[in-house]
Write a protein that binds this DNA or RNA. Structure first.
Lengths: 328, 328
DNA sequence: CTGAAAGCGCTAACAA
DNA sequence: TTGTTAGCGCTTTCAG
């Protein structure tokens, strides 16, 4: 592999000149520039990023810390973050925490400043004390705790409220919620939106209709739905805090011969691609994932370049109405 | 951030001694070791990986080149590769190609030896000439072309054959295939397995029942299924070359009021988590993804450490029978 | 506008 | 057993 020095020797100039050409710096005598470019071409020179970054005190990487790639929402998001990072010549390092406190702590601990220039975090269990980051970071999802880190995401209260309003507008009166969680900030906000929608329609908040979920996988949604269907008077609609829970819920309903949407309307959250093709297809709150990824990366880039702390970013969302609430 | 030198000064020894302790090398006088360890602790020293790797001529990264993270199979695989790589202290860099030749070429081109120590490739369009890698690599999926790179994966012919045999054993006679592709090696092998299963049961190979798919997304499966249902005599079973195609096919069937499995049996390939919860759940060929990820990473590690070229690895698979072929 | 040279933090050959 | 020191390849003062 050719080094700067090799190129310099071949072009008959100093490394400085080559470096100048490579980095598009200042003014280089046209003649020298030509010779350097020829030498660059001839050697097939490619800069050694490690050396460059060692010198610049940068690494060229950002970390993306998330629960699990096998969760479609995070997989999609990761793809978008990678694409956005590429535009700033950043490579993305993905760390999976599996949603555990230990996993999240160990991911954070490994984030030395020599490894990454910045980090995008999607924590689910971290506590306030844990946020002693050594690199700039941005939070996706919620401030589970109050920490001075910029956040990028949608207005979860408004989004949940829109989802439940939709169910109410369809005439549903007994609306359940799946996904309550004792420590997860996002869950608290979605629950708040659910409450608000019920309240503004003067519908009662019924404790037994709010089902907690420790995880947000399909299996958890199915289990929650079963417990709901076992109730003396089951709900006629259910708002699930993510699409995976909703898919599980629909599966459980099908197993009990409960028809969706005629007997039970279902709304999810995340708008996974999977939800467009399920039978019935799933009505879902659709955060603009692309906007989230871009905003997070741009915020960090700004932060790293200028050093200035930046404000939170609120990204848009919409409600995608499909067969699980309105039959074709 | 503390450097080796800082630690050495604090401990009153040379950097060499500190380096020895940090790297667990040779013999260090117990007294010195203790003082170094104290200094390490006091400063919270963390080695600068960039510098270490620059010196060692390693980067500490491997690349994982795949079509798209939004495809569940690759998302799952990526998660497993990250986990396997961690055990060799490797970080994983994911590059998305979107299955295009241009995307794959540009991903390969960016894989300089300064960026990664090795690469795991899942190409779909690359041609033989493109495989001029500058780092050790292993191929997931098939040798689309004949190149001297180790491959890790299942026996696609046998797997496809098992899937179609299952359909035949259920009494199906008119079995379609969705996913034929002019250049994709994997598609050719799965088609071969399909043919073999038909042949051994003395069933005719019917051209119009083999539907090509340029992409393997849900939408492609739905489109293919529609064309199959438009046939004067539609199939009574369909073997899809991946689960996404199968999910799309089931969706299209549902839209035409065709019942699965009573009127149409469906088998997929990949065994996505999604397929366990669809209604009906999907019978699918299940490659051992964890074994694939581990084998690929271990092979590369071996290769990088010892320099020796290693043989291909064939990983196991099974057929998961679910409701799409056998009603509960 | 360009060259010489220092040094980013680390490892390892060589000396002591 | 440990210290000294020369780089890994690059960027960047500082002179010229």
């Amino acid at each position: 592999m050719a080094t700067l020095k090799d190129v310099a020797r071949l072009a008959g100039v100093s490394v400085k000149t080559v470096s100048n050409v490579v980095n598009g710096y200042s003014f280089v005598k046209p003649d020298n520039r030509r010779r350097v470019e020829e030498a660059l071409e001839a050697t097939g020179y490619r800069p050694n990023l490690g050396a460059r970054n060692l010198r610049r005190g940068r690494t060229g990487f950002i970390a993306l810390v998330l629960p699990e790639l096998s969760i479609p929402y995070f997989a999609e998001l990761a793809g978008l973050v990678i694409a956005a990072a590429q535009e700033h010549e950043w490579n993305v390092l993905i760390e999976q925490t599996f949603g555990t406190l230990a996993g999240e702590r160990s991911a954070l601990a490994s984030l030395g400043p020599h490894l990454v220039d910045a980090a995008i975090l999607s924590p689910e269990a971290l506590e306030a004390d844990d946020f002693q980051l050594s690199v700039p970071a941005v939070l996706l999802g919620e401030h589970a705790v109050d920490v001075p880190i910029s956040r990028v995401g949608i207005d979860n209260v408004a989004a949940a409220q829109a989802a439940v309003r939709h169910l109410i507008s369809l005439g549903h009166q007994r609306i359940a919620a799946i996904g309550a969680h004792p420590h997860r900030g996002t869950a608290a906000l979605r629950l708040e939106g659910y409450r608000a929608a019920l309240a503004e329609a003067s519908l009662p908040f019924v404790d037994e209709l709010v089902i907690p979920a420790l995880n947000y996988h399909r299996a958890d949604g199915a289990a929650a739905m079963r417990s709901l269907l076992d109730l003396p008077s089951p709900p006629d609609a259910v708002f699930c805090f993510n699409d995976l829970l909703a898919i599980g819920a629909m599966r459980a309903a099908a197993e009990r011969q409960v028809r969706v949407p005629s007997q039970l309307a279902v709304v999810g959250f995340d708008n996974n691609e999977e939800s467009v093709y399920s039978s019935p297809s799933l009505t879902s709150v659709a955060p603009d994932k692309s906007a989230i990824a871009r905003a997070a990366v741009d915020l960090l880039h700004q932060r790293v370049e200028t050093g200035e702390l930046l404000a939170d970013v609120e990204t848009p969302f919409s409600l995608q109405v499909r067969e699980s609430t309105v039959a074709r």
